[in-house]
Simulated assay, not measured.
Amino acid sequence: MNAPLLVGAGGVLGAVARYAVGRRLPGRTADTFAVNVLGSLALGALTVGVPANAPVSAAFGVGFCGAFTTFSSFAVETVTLYEEGRRRAAVRNAVLNLVGALIAVGIGGWLASALG
């Protein structure tokens, strides 16, 4: 199967999963934080466990994780909090998303190495 179709199929699944998480988690930023950390964990595991040119990398890494994670929503939410005068909440949101995603990538890579 060719890469664009794999990316598209993975993207559809990732977008649906993102929507489902958004429907389950209350609050303005909880769902965005959850998908960014979970998606980063999965991508970290994938990058260690699977060759970059493998079909699963296109489908899951680019497609699913690309559609599932939502750093653009994170950016909008952070700026909105700041513009509303909720400066501490904006900084907290930025730090939690960025640090959480970076830690999750590392844990995902470590898990893939340890289990693989």
Rank of each mutant, 00 (worst) to 15 (best):
M1N: 08
P4E: 03
L5P: 00
G8E: 14
A9D: 13
G10N: 07
G10F: 01
G10S: 12
G11E: 09
G11S: 11
V12F: 15
G14A: 02
V16I: 15
A17G: 05
A20H: 07
A20N: 05
V21P: 09
G22L: 06
R23M: 13
R23V: 01
R23D: 03
R23W: 00
L25G: 11
L25F: 15
L25A: 15
P26L: 10
G27Q: 14
T29F: 11
A30N: 11
D31L: 11
D31F: 15
A34Q: 04
V35H: 05
A42S: 13
G44L: 11
G44P: 14
A45H: 03
L46G: 02
V48G: 03
G49K: 12
G49P: 14
V50N: 05
P51R: 14
P51W: 15
P51S: 11
A52M: 01
A52H: 04
N53F: 02
N53E: 15
A54W: 03
A54S: 13
P55E: 01
V56F: 08
V56Q: 11
V56M: 09
S57W: 10
S57Q: 07
S57C: 06
A59G: 13
A59R: 01
A59E: 02
F64P: 06
F64D: 10
G66F: 03
G66L: 13
A67W: 08
F68Q: 07
F68T: 13
T69C: 05
T70H: 10
T70W: 11
S73N: 06
A75L: 07
V76W: 07
T78F: 06
T80W: 01
L81S: 02
E84F: 02
G85S: 03
R86G: 00
R87N: 07
R87Q: 10
R88L: 12
A89G: 08
A89L: 04
A90Q: 02
A90E: 00
V91G: 06
V91D: 00
N93Y: 05
A94T: 09
N97S: 11
N97D: 12
L98M: 08
V99P: 00
G100N: 02
I103N: 05
A104M: 14
V105R: 12
G106E: 10
G108P: 10
G108F: 06
G109A: 15
W110H: 11
W110T: 08
L111P: 08
L115T: 14
G116V: 02
